[in-house]
Amino acid sequence: MAEPLLSVKDLKVSFRTEDGLVRAVDGISFTVDEGEVVGIVGESGSGKSVTMMSVMRLITDPNVIYEGEIVYKGRNLMGLSQDAMREVRGEEIAMIFQDPMTSLNPVYTIGWQIEEQLNEHNDLKKGQARRRAIDLLAQVGIPRPEQRIDDHPHQFSGGMRQRVMIALALSCNPDLLIADEPTTALDVTIQAQILELIKNLKRDFGSAVVLITHDLGVVADIADRILVMYAGRIVEEGNKEQIFYDPQHPYTWGLLGSIARLDRPKRRRLTTIAGQPPSLINRPRGCSFRPRCPQAFDRCSVEDPALTAKVGDGHLDACHLSVEDKRARRDATIRPELAESA
């Protein structure tokens, strides 16, 4: 196998606060291969955004503490100077964000904002940048790009603004596109459009995509591999088939059960994950998910489970239950909500 495009090694991100050290990301490792689509799934505060913001080194909070390595194409991004990092940002790794309504500068035309990005990373003549910007807008499906290029962000709808953000991200043909909840603020119909667009772009541009979301449904169609994060750690990792058809971690079951599914007979109640995510300052002893886990037993409150492969190739989970136990309990509790196993 070739070297992965991005490899995160034992990344820890903490913030000093008045109440103590908040361990937002607590020792995670994963890789992203070239052209691969990786979904990172978890609740608010699970550390999924912080992880990818750290890859971009976009966290400006002076109280942040990083540990670990982020290796992109053989270079450790953590060790790069600000100037060297700027070359990576926008040119090799691009990012789009959750709220398209506030992610574009309201005082400049969208053309200006795309051209600014192009000029920062390329040596272009005056007309070239504009022509390229029009091409990009056409590629992301904005009608009449020659006219719309001179419009300001507020003249676009939410879905259209997210398209502009994607055009911006694609302007330098990045090898890695990070999409942080790109559809959460949008209508389902517009969400379908944007996901379709990201899928096509992956096909046309061949860039790898990391898609962050709280909704497993969003990544079912688009992701090759999925990481499930809880309280700053990865609790399960596997390819799409493994995560959806043979989920191992009770937290993943909970996430799957929470979705009101259109493809299943209506249930009387949704399966929920009781309670709230734990405090990231004082992590509970043992497994972080134990206080909310209906399957917890003695060992869970003493020993922190490690992320290991138990069922198969590349399918990792952090749970003390044995594989047989897990399958039996899973089938007993949320069987009807799971997809048919192969």
């Binding site: 971009m56 976009l58 700027r86 990576v88 940002r89 506030t102 992610s103 500068n105 600014e116 953000m165």
Partner: peptide, 23 residues
């Protein structure tokens, strides 16, 4: 500085100086 579009400007790889003065 905490607005989303400033984060976008940084994500574009602009220099801190440009982010400060132009955005």
């Amino acid at each position: 500085d905490s607005e989303d579009y400033i984060r976008t400007a940084r994500a574009k790889g602009l220099s801190e100086r440009r982010v400060l003065f132009r955005h």
